[in-house]
Design a protein around this nucleic acid. Structure first.
Lengths: 236, 236
DNA sequence: TAATATATGATGGTCTGACCATCATCTCTC
DNA sequence: GAGAGATGATGGTCAGACCATCATATATTA
């Protein structure tokens, strides 16, 4: 005998299901306005509370956005921290920092390989400008972190694969969350930043010349260096 | 002049923030019971509706689980479809199927490389049993899909990196969602399944002998084959 | 006494109705 | 015609109610 598990789907889950379907069918697109909560309440014959529970869940994952007085809309652009949920769940895992770094290594290796093949002039120019700023302004914590992030994100973007880009940014975010204190300490050292800048330049040169293998090598060097610093910081 | 954006954080977001902090501080762990909605309502001095909006969001991302009559708990095990949110947001993107496949290729390549180095006897035995079943039972749609999934998931698990495993399963889920009809068609052909089984065996042998390079090669062959099938199916 | 049946209370799930702040729009006034 | 003010729609929040489910305590029964 085989019993089917009885799933008592909650009302707000059914609401989500319907919205999901509408997106899947193309009835809802980026920037579209959803019916108002009160309108949906009538259409779906449920309470406004259930609608709002569905909306808050969808807002959390970055699919929709509610603007008071205006309405609720499908997000125009996916957030950077699209996978903040992932970071949260990772909080429950032990020993996740080292795993994150390992994943970042493999993902970013892929990014840089693809970027070397696919980057266009505009993105090259942007990377160049980031590098320039890095060289001139070493020292200020916040800005240094921003520039470092810019560099790596831009490389990921140049890989021309949105899914990979999402993953990459999410991993970075999750790492930041897990080692935030460590990271700040690291990047605030001028010596470290100088070393970073040298690495970044090497990576950039390899990408610029379309040399995937070289780019991978330089990226691996860089990330090994990062790993070493993090471990030294954590353990010592 | 630089203005700070005024963020009017909603109540339910503040609730989430507090729970997040408690997890970060280790006050909440796997399986722990959260205070009841009515208790939280008093403690945080907000309405039950706001608590429930927060909970539904956290439940959506797989962090908590509400059991009627019992209470609300931090999830014991992270769901497989941890990144269903990702799948949803990807629905808004165009041309995402090919990108997903590309990402799956790079992720799974990494998985198989690491698996070849880290797999233990138990997992080897499980993979063996999956292969055995595949050989004996080719034909039934649902079961074939299950076995295929089992194989790839097990390889990912053997890589001994939970984050990578989450990503891998999520990519697979997202792919399934985007090409579900195609997938069913593919796997239902006996010829395809036989080919798959041969590929899987080669991959398994490479992993078994700890040969990363060989494993990567065989996995790439397999995924190229999959890609070819999908494109043929999609394009006509 | 021990097993069973029942009642109680706590919990999540849902609904209703209300009030507020924000925003777009219409309308009135000058 | 331009600006000011009123109006209505919208999301944000709250309070209170009722239900089904479940664990526990209590009462009943063998």
């Amino acid at each position: 005998m085989k019993f089917e598990p009885i799933k008592t789907e909650k009302v707000y889950e059914k609401v989500i299901e319907q919205i999901k379907d509408m997106i899947y069918n193309g009835e809802l697109r980026r920037g579209d306005k959803l019916p108002s909560e009160r309108a949906l309440k009538k259409q779906l014959n449920v309470s406004r509370a259930s609608i709002r529970e569905a909306f808050s869940a969808l807002e959390m994952i970055g699919l929709i956005e509610s603007r008071p007085g205006r309405g609720t809309f499908i997000k125009e652009q996916a957030d950077k921290n699209l996978l903040e949920p992932l970071s949260l769940v990772l909080l429950l895992e032990d020993d996740v920092a080292s795993e994150l770094l390992e994943v970042r290594k493999v993902i970013e290796t892929d990014c840089v390989r693809m970027a070397a093949k696919r980057i266009d002039d505009e993105e090259l120019e942007f990377l160049r400008s980031v590098l320039k700023k890095m060289k001139s302004k070493s020292g200020f914590e916040d800005e240094s972190i921003e520039l470092d992030r810019d560099f790596h994100y831009s490389v990921a973007r140049a890989a021309k694969n949105k899914v990979l880009f999402y993953l990459m940014t999410s991993i970075m975010d999750a790492m930041d969350f897990h080692i935030k204190y460590t990271r700040t300490k690291l990047v605030s050292k001028e010596e470290t930043m100088n070393e970073f800048t040298i690495h970044h330049e090497k990576i950039f040169k390899a990408i610029e010349s379309g040399d995937s293998e070289k780019a991978i090598e330089e990226m691996n060097n860089h990330l090994k260096y990062v790993e070493k610093l993090i471990n030294r910081e954590i353990e010592g």
